[in-house]
Write a protein that binds this DNA or RNA. Structure first.
Lengths: 175, 175
DNA sequence: TGGCGTTGTTTGATATATCATACACGCGAT
DNA sequence: ATCGCGTGTATGATATATCAAACAACGCCA
């Protein structure tokens, strides 16, 4: 019923996830400590925005601050960052190495999705990639034949309603 | 640099996508025409919220209104709905039938992602599923052996930082 | 000791997305 | 004809997320 609301219910927003990632990346060379200015520069937003957003991140217990106003991830925040980073790598790897999507597009898609997929989905995707790249004969053969199949796929078929914008026509098998 | 901002730049928000889907579903039995009340009931939000959100949807050219205040998808809106529906089905099918994720979780994850994946990613995912379910010997064998591999996977390994919350440890192959 | 630049915060603005509540309109039943 | 209910809209509130601009504080340099 309210499945679609799970999106909003997610306590980790896209914005928050990237603030945490930025703190991690910026602080990497300074023992985990980051300055508001550098976080803002990294995200290409204003210092004011970062300052305001940090309130929520602190309230959630994801970051800690210094007496010098330096910012650091809490253990809880670090766990979130690890989780998000891992999911992005997994999704991007799948999109690029299995589906053959261009690096740039794979980056964009995985960046949008990284904070949304569940732990179990991420884990199963890892196992899938592990098996696919395990070097087992069946995996190698499958990948090779899939590449050939892809090459033979028509660029796109036209849908009566969407004029090629949707994929309905290609979904007959799924009904 | 600003890849992460693509999320906000997306003109089709999660909320908007589901409003359009609701209009489509509610209107299905009435020649595409839907009432604000029914849309609100469908989404489990107030009539007021729908009323306000419809302004944006109209401004974007996705819906049209009647002199009786009935709401209908424009041709452009219908294309969006087809595109989103198709992507949800594709992703859900992949999660459920390939990765073996439970129906409910697959529904939640695909619902979060449906409006975010690009057309090319959706199309390639379709081709992947087509090949996997084509009945080709290599596909059947691959799927069977993957199931066996999955069954042998340890439930989860513990990450020093995350205590099993992240998947970093399982990503060694990807570095 | 001044002054200037960087830094972090605050303020007022916009945009989305929701709520509860109040209001106005129309239609059907009495 | 009017009473009441359902419907759509409007209003004021909250929460997120951004901006520009103003402001205060600190440090460095002369």
């Amino acid at each position: 019923m309210d499945t679609w609301k799970e999106f909003e219910a997610n306590e980790l927003t896209h914005s928050a996830a990237h603030h945490l990632l930025a703190i991690y990346e910026v602080g990497e060379a300074y023992g985990g400590w980051a300055r508001v200015s550098d976080i803002a520069r990294r995200l290409n937003i204003t210092r004011g925005s970062v300052s305001i957003n940090l309130r929520t991140l602190k309230k959630r217990g994801w970051v800690q601050t210094d007496e010098h106003r330096l910012v650091k991830l809490s253990p809880k925040g670090l766990r979130v960052v690890h989780s998000v980073m891992a999911k992005r790598v997994i999704v991007k790897t799948f999109l690029r190495d299995v589906l053959g999507i261009a690096e740039a597009q794979a980056e964009i898609d995985s960046c949008k999705i990284e904070h949304l997929i569940s732990h179990s989905t991420g884990q199963r995707l890892v196992h899938f990639l592990q098996f696919l790249t395990s070097g087992a004969p069946v995996s190698r053969q499958f990948l090779r034949q899939f590449r050939a199949f892809q090459a033979s796929c028509p660029a796109s078929r036209t849908c009566g309603v969407c004029k090629g914008q949707c994929l309905i026509d290609e979904l007959k098998y799924a009904t």
